[in-house]
């Protein structure tokens, strides 16, 4: 598969629309149905809101989108500490994507969402 698309935007709510549009475009390329594209757009909204709510998010938000045979891997890296996995926001992410994981180190968090396209 081609190299992942990587996009860096300022940690500002005004740029969430850019992340959302890029995600929709890549998911559309990957042949996702409208349902799944809309779910992913909601997930990006939710994830960006969680990232921007981090008090230490002075750094940029970095989004990477990777098409794979199994679907789409979306990663968002931002400054801050691990997100509460028992919170409402995390529950929303888990429901909208096939899976959600996070790794926190050196004052940065990377959240990884897997989304699976439809078969047939």
């Amino acid at each position: 598969m081609a190299a992942p698309l990587i996009l860096t935007v300022p940690a500002d709510p005004a740029y969430v629309v850019v992340l959302r549009a890029a995600t929709a475009a890549v998911a559309s390329r990957a042949g996702f149905g409208l349902d799944q594209i809309e779910d992913l757009r909601l997930a990006v909204d939710e994830l960006a809101a969680l990232a921007l709510a981090e008090p230490s998010t002075a750094d940029d938000l970095q989004l990477s989108l990777d098409e794979s045979d199994a679907g789409l891997v979306l990663r968002l890296r931002f400054g801050g500490s691990a997100l509460p996995e028992d919170g409402f926001g995390w529950m929303v992410l888990r429901s909208l994507a096939a899976s959600a994981e996070q790794v926190a180190e050196d004052g940065h968090v990377t959240v990884t969402l897997h989304a699976v396209g439809q078969s047939g």
């Binding site: 629309v17 959302r20 549009a21 929709a24 475009a25 559309s28 042949g31 996702f32 149905g33 409208l34 349902d35 799944q36 594209i37 809309e38 757009r41 439809q118 047939g120």
Partner: peptide, 28 residues
């Protein structure tokens, strides 16, 4: 019997995929 893809919608409406994506953003 499933959710259509952007490419299928674009073909059906005789517009480009970018137009469909743009309309999705506009819906927001």
């Amino acid at each position: 019997g499933r959710s259509p893809t952007v490419a299928e919608l674009a073909a059906d409406l005789s517009v480009g995929s970018e137009d469909v994506l743009e309309a999705l953003e506009a819906a927001d």
